[in-house]
């Protein structure tokens, strides 16, 4: 029988140093409470894969020195401007960056979903994104005539870390229309979810809820994290905390300010 984790810390225990960790884009249910717990634990050398972009989450992990390799098609704070710790790390060369483009990350995870070694993708030819990716190959379309096409090796993460509205006592997690969370879970060896609440009953018993449910078969751990995406939003449930994000952008603009931010909002239990 599925056991709900006692705490977020217990749920994320399998995420160790050097883990290849896949996380969702900024509007899909980002497990920020779990991310702060990882920083507090002092995790190191993550190979972080953002599907396909990230905002605060990647900036925080990079700034706190948790990331060795970052695979993403962008990191930005949106209207608040560039992601300051990400920009600083890239310009000073302290992380290894695998620059990608959004559909390439989706496709490479879909390859793992299907258990195939690679996926082809249009576009990319003649770009410097392709030029600097020595793990991507160009082949002649074997079914075409003089038609070069890019092949992307499958991305198989050790762990997918997600945040969603609810789970049930069977480990089923309701993700709604955030289907990229399903792609992540299908592709990864293990999936860890934080949720706002526990659903009474079995999510798969209700056909309306079942359509948006990620079956417990894929889930290794679930912990409750109330407002676990804060200060980011949880789609259809609560919005981003714009004031706090603006505060982050201001504080993280300098290394000293970022250290203060960590002290106040990550190492100390948040007051919000």
């Amino acid at each position: 029988m599925f056991q709900l984790a006692k705490s977020v810390d217990d749920a994320i225990a399998p995420i160790g140093d050097g883990c290849m960790l896949v996380v969702p884009r900024e509007v899909s249910g980002v497990p920020m409470e779990a991310t702060r717990a990882l920083v507090r634990r002092g995790i190191k050398q993550l190979h972080l894969v953002a599907l396909p972009t990230s905002s605060l989450q990647a900036d925080l992990l990079v700034g706190a020195g948790c990331v060795e390799t970052l695979e993403t098609s962008a990191v930005s704070l949106g209207e608040l401007g560039p992601a300051p710790r990400f920009s600083a790390a890239v310009t000073s060369g302290t992380i290894k960056l695998k620059d990608a483009t959004c559909p390439a990350l989706h496709a490479a995870l879909q390859a793992s979903e299907k258990g195939v070694p690679f996926m082809p993708l249009r576009g990319l030819l003649g770009s410097d994104v392709l030029r600097y990716r020595d793990d991507w190959k160009v082949i002649a379309n074997p079914f075409g005539d003089n038609d070069p096409i890019v092949l992307l090796p499958a991305i198989k993460p050790d762990v997918a870390l997600i945040h969603a509205l609810m789970a049930d006592g069977f480990g089923n997690v309701w993700i709604g229309r955030q289907r990229e969370l399903a792609t992540m879970a299908h592709a990864a060896d293990r999936t860890i979810a934080t949720v706002e609440k526990i659903h009474d009953g079995n999510l798969l018993d209700d056909p309306v809820l079942a359509a948006g449910t990620l079956p417990g078969f894929y889930i290794d751990a679930v912990a409750v994290a109330d407002r676990g995406a804060w200060p980011l939003g949880l789609p259809d449930h609560y919005g981003a905390d714009a004031d706090h994000l603006a505060l982050y952008a201001r504080m993280a603009a300098t290394e000293a300010g970022f250290e203060d931010y960590l002290k106040q909002y990550v190492y100390e239990k948040r007051a919000a």
Binding site: S76, T101, L125
Partner: peptide, 21 residues
């Protein structure tokens, strides 16, 4: 230089694909 950039922007997003299709 890409390996030692002066200014880093967010990243290519979907451009390396959508621009073609």
């Amino acid at each position: 230089e890409y390996q030692r950039p002066r200014v880093r922007f967010p990243g290519s997003f979907g451009s390396s694909y959508l621009y073609y299709v």
